[in-house]
Design a protein around this nucleic acid. Structure first.
Length: 593
RNA sequence: UGCCUGAUGGUGUAAUGGUAGCACAAGCGACUCUGACUCGCUUUGUCUAGGUUCGACUCCUAGUCGGGCAGCCA
């Protein structure tokens, strides 16, 4: 997989390309605007790759901006996790177009040439820089709201939430004007100032745009611009008790930052006329941003909804937002999935306006494709069964050489020792083998990878009939470099020396849901896969003792595994299975799958 | 019953009036000291009905089906 895939093409990029050809903007500026009310997930990755991708392909800029206008749902924990996750996803790919600003900077403090420019060169983006926050614009936003009132385009409304809803009408029924719609500019100004001053309780009044209560588009029926919320804000502190709503804050935040292309998902199509109305109703001298919408990601057997993922966390279905089974970027990272694979995935699925469900196999494919090239191979046995090589003496060690990565252009090797007692995978032995079984069977031969061919002589069982060991003879003339090394047997299996093996907890993950579209079911919690985690104590080759969580290994013939960043350490090794290898055999075993 | 939006193999996505292609999945085969990887081959598609045109996935008309919208969430 190329580190930098070829530049993708899609309808959004076509629009941008048209603007560049027309020299409509001096610089392309996009933004990724999460609300800090949950962790980022694979669906957000699609948006991040689109926004940062467009910026990097056009020598532009993409601001990370927190859309933090609703303090009751937001938290600093999410600000931190989102920042970390975005930087991880774009690292080595779009760092140089990441828009950050000096810590604490607000628009007025850094405006130059009549145009706010918070952008720092990548070298300057260190501890003294931070993402953008819509809440840093609260003062500007308030001033714009006052301007709207003065133009007679906004009014303070005293309707309760319930009345506001009923006055709005329904999709096929026009709404009716609020009795407060005709207040004078002076009265609105006074009331709005007193809202800001904290004179009224939560929900007592709101600021509304004066548009058209009979508009067929519900979002044009005098939408709310500000609500009263006597709560402190995680970023703005306790400076405010009125907070702007999304529609008012977003378009103006885009304008303040000089965004050219405001890219969002399809559910905001209905909001676009409002986005344009607000910007068009104010005196805004600079070029206005425009909104473009694409279809968000839906992934099979996966939940792509912050709200629903939060429920999994709260109900302790998973251990946290970063549980390796979660489709969050934190979870995927902990599981061992490379950021480059996620970017490749975004590239492969494309960007359209079609509401669709992507097959998880597409995601799994890019993970394997990436790891196959990068992961070093190791030997590990998940569910061991003991083999005794009767022609080796106790304590005897036969030195073998294993290749670290056959995909490498210049593969390196490491030594492993074959001893009298070794563990093999219990699945690699069958007392009564199915047809076409290539692995160890009574009287049969297999090759121990990197070692030699062995022949099964005897199956030893205890009094209860349980197999305790398999006694085999090793044909040491079939080792690499030995005269019979190219002797062919149908099966090659992995193994670990019983003397040298180290124990590790290995967590085997499966999909979190049994339903192809959990979000489309009545209750997704009823479709949680109760077998999504299986914990085994595995036998690993000794080299794995030094593995670090930023490495992912292929355990040969099994899959890709990475040390758990939170729980694996010198005292106790814990590995997460990132993904299995493709297994063409599994589907062919009679009665299997 | 209002407004917005979409429809191409099993899935996702190209083709912007000129050979329906790519990826994933599936199947068969080759190779193999990973039943992996790699390689070769194969199956399967333009929502429907009209129209325009030498020629339509593409343009027009009418339908059908799907998604979104009535938070003081984003």
């Amino acid at each position: 997989m190329p580190a930098t895939p070829p530049a993708p093409s899609d309808f959004v990029r076509d629009i941008v390309a048209g603007h560049i050809a027309a020299k409509r903007y001096p610089k392309i500026v996009t933004r990724f605007p999460p609300e800090p009310n949950g962790y980022l997930h694979i669906g957000h990755a699609k948006s991040i790759c689109l926004n940062f991708g467009i910026a990097r392909e056009n020598a532009g800029q993409c601001n990370l901006r927190f859309d933090d206008t609703n303090p009751v749902k937001e938290d600093i924990e999410y600000v931190d996790s989102i920042t970390t996750d975005v930087r991880w996803l774009i690292a080595g790919w779009a760092d140089d177009v990441l828009g950050f600003k000096p810590k604490g900077a607000k628009p007025a403090a850094v405006t130059s040439n009549g145009r706010p420019d918070h952008f720092l060169a990548p070298a300057a983006v260190g501890a003294s820089a931070e993402p953008f926050f819509a809440s840093d614009y609260f003062a500007e936003l308030y001033a714009y709201a006052v301007q709207l009132i003065k133009k007679g385009k906004a009014y303070v409304c005293d309707l309760s939430a319930e009345d506001t809803e009923s006055y709005r009408g329904s999709p096929d029924q026009p709404g009716k004007d609020s009795p407060f719609r005709t207040r004078t500019v002076e009265e609105n100004l006074d009331l709005f100032a007193r809202m800001k001053a904290g004179e009224f309780p939560n929900g007592a009044r709101s600021l509304r745009a004066k548009i058209d209560m009979t508009a067929p588009n519900l979002w044009l029926r005098d939408p709310l611009l500000y609500r009263i919320r006597h709560v402190p804000h995680h970023h703005a502190g306790d400076a405010w008790c009125i907070y702007p709503l999304y529609d008012f804050a977003h378009c103006l935040s885009d304008y303040i930052e000089g965004i050219t292309h405001s890219i969002c998902t399809l559910e905001f199509v209905d909001h676009r006329p409002l986005y344009d109305w607000i910007l068009g109703s104010l005196d805004l001298p600079r070029a206005l941003p425009h909104q473009y919408e694409f279809a968000k990601l839906n992934l099979g057997y996966t939940l792509v909804s912050k709200r629903k993922l939060l429920q999994l966390v709260q109900k302790k279905v998973v251990t946290g937002w970063d549980d390796p089974r979660m489709p969050t970027l934190s979870g995927l990272r902990r599981r061992g999935i490379p950021a480059s694979a996620i970017r490749q995935f975004a590239y492969n699925i494309g960007v359209t306006k079609n509401d669709s469900v992507t097959d998880v196999a597409v995601f799994e494919h890019v993970i394997r494709e990436s790891l196959n090239v990068s992961a070093e191979r190791r030997l590990a046995v998940l569910k061991p069964i003991k083999i005794v090589l009767t022609n080796l003496a106790p304590g005897e060690v036969v030195a073998c050489t294993a290749t670290n990565n056959p995909q490498s252009e210049t593969p390196t090797t490491r030594g492993i020792g074959l001893t009298r007692e070794v563990f093999i995978e219990s699945e690699d032995f069958a007392e009564v083998p199915p047809p076409k079984y290539f692995r160890l069977k009574p009287g049969g031969e297999v090759r121990l990878k990197y070692a030699c061919i062995i022949k099964l002589d005897e199956i030893v069982k205890d009094a209860a009939g349980v197999i305790t060991e398999l006694r085999c003879t090793a044909d040491l003339t079939t080792r690499s470099g030995q005269p019979n090394s190219d002797r062919k047997v149908k099966g090659t299996i992995h193994w670990v020396s019983a003397d040298q093996a180290i124990d590790a907890e290995v967590r085997l993950y499966d999909r979190l849901f049994t339903a192809a579209e959990p979000a489309a079911t009545d209750d997704f919690l009823q479709h949680v896969n109760l077998q999504s985690l299986e914990v085994v104590t595995a036998k690993l080759e000794p080299a794995l003792a030094a593995a670090s969580p930023d490495e992912c290994f292929q355990f040969e013939r099994l899959g890709y595994f990475t040390p758990d960043a939170k729980e694996s350490g010198a005292g106790k090794l814990v590995f997460n299975r990132t993904i299995t290898l493709r297994d063409a055999w599994a589907g062919k075993i009679p009665g299997h799958k």
